[in-house]
Amino acid sequence: MNNHESCQMDKLHPGLTQELLKALYLEGLVRWFCEIKVSPWALTWRHFLGTVALLLLVLLFLSGAFMAFYYTPSPGAAYDSVDFAVFNLPFGEVIKGIHHYAWNLLLIVVGLHLARTFVRGTYKAPRQGVWISGVILFLFLPMFIITGDLLPWDQKGYWSTQVRLSIIASVPVVGDIMTRLLQGGALTGIVALTRFYVLHIIFMPVLLLILLVIHFHFILHLGLAEPLKPNDTLPARKSFFPIVVNRALLLFLLTTLALGLVSWYWPPPFGDPADPTDTSYIPKPEWWVLFLNQLVSIFSGSLSVVGTVIIPGGLAALLVLLPFMDRSPERRPAKRVKVMIIASVIILILTWLSVIGYRAHFLTAH
């Protein structure tokens, strides 16, 4: 290892800084970080999606914590508290925009991360745990958007929640119980808002942290996936601290700056206060749920369970069980023709449904 890739304590923390680390009993922790070695492609353009996803989660936590300082979880004050934070606090609109766009970008990044893992075949043994924990994370993340939509108590959030609760209620056996558990009664009011708020800022972040610990537990023991091509050479491993940490910090700053600029020039919409009596309001679905909305529209009436449970649940189960269904050691896409064709057909169908849903909700005049 060359001199600037080394992580020696006397070079990183000379003089007073090293003495301070000793006084705070942090010297061992820093040395442990120094001893962690990772592949140098951890932050290359081909392998940085997982790191970006983690950085986006940190950014979401920070922006969400800022907004929580000024939020009041009651129907009479929720909208006004968000309005105050957005339009009266310095950079309030930018911070809310960062929170909004970071969630959308996170879904894209995690989706691309899973897609890349699938194409490279790195879901196979012995990396089943990494894949399954990653899939569960991907399926869990939209729950933050679902619970967060209601919190501003505006028209879009309120009526989108009503649509989702009606879909949940249509699930056989457990649907009605789940709906009443979320609503706290027959109507969406202060109890529902409080429960969504507690889920959004306490229970779900704890569950997310547990899932992340499990995911990184597998990564720590298995490392990054080996190169796809047999003739690829494994480059020398680099110190996690400070080399990779510094790159991650730079990427975090660039991501924050980019999202901040987008929020400054294209602030996210913030509509009128929620009006539970305005039944004429028709919320437009988010882009990531368009194909699900279309499934609900196709399978209506007695067949609604097909669009709300059977097909989405089947696709989720297919993702989770993929490592056990495709047991061949072959990882090259050209040698996994059957699996690649099946995946391509599923993606094309979901894309087709999303396009139809987009045209129906955004291009067709109502």
Rank of each mutant, 00 (worst) to 15 (best):
R116Q: 00
E330D: 10
W352C: 14
A68S: 14
D278H: 12
F291D: 11
I146P: 00
W287I: 14
V309D: 04
I311L: 12
V38F: 08
V244P: 00
A169H: 14
H200K: 09
W32V: 05
R120E: 08
S239V: 12
A78C: 06
P269W: 02
I214R: 02
E330T: 12
R336I: 07
V320I: 15
F48G: 06
L199Q: 03
R195Q: 06
F270V: 07
G189R: 08
G76I: 08
P329G: 04
L112T: 03
V174R: 02
I347S: 13
Q155G: 06
K284M: 12
F87I: 06
H366K: 14
L211C: 13
A53Y: 06
G64L: 08
D154V: 08
H13D: 06
F66P: 10
Q155N: 11
V355A: 08
G76C: 02
V306H: 03
L292T: 05
E35G: 02
L234M: 13
D326Y: 08
N3E: 15
G260Q: 05
G50R: 03
M1T: 11
E93H: 09
N246P: 00
S39L: 14
P269M: 06
A316P: 01
A317P: 00
S354E: 05
T179D: 10
F362Y: 15
L165V: 05
G148N: 04
A23S: 14
L57S: 13
F87N: 15
W153P: 00
F270Q: 09
E27S: 11
G76N: 11
P227D: 03
S354T: 10
L207I: 12
C7I: 00
A115P: 00
R164N: 12
R116Y: 00
A169G: 01
G314P: 05
V309F: 12
M204E: 08
F241A: 07
L212F: 11
V109C: 07
A77M: 14
R180D: 10
L220R: 15
R332A: 13
A334Q: 15
V163T: 11
F87M: 09
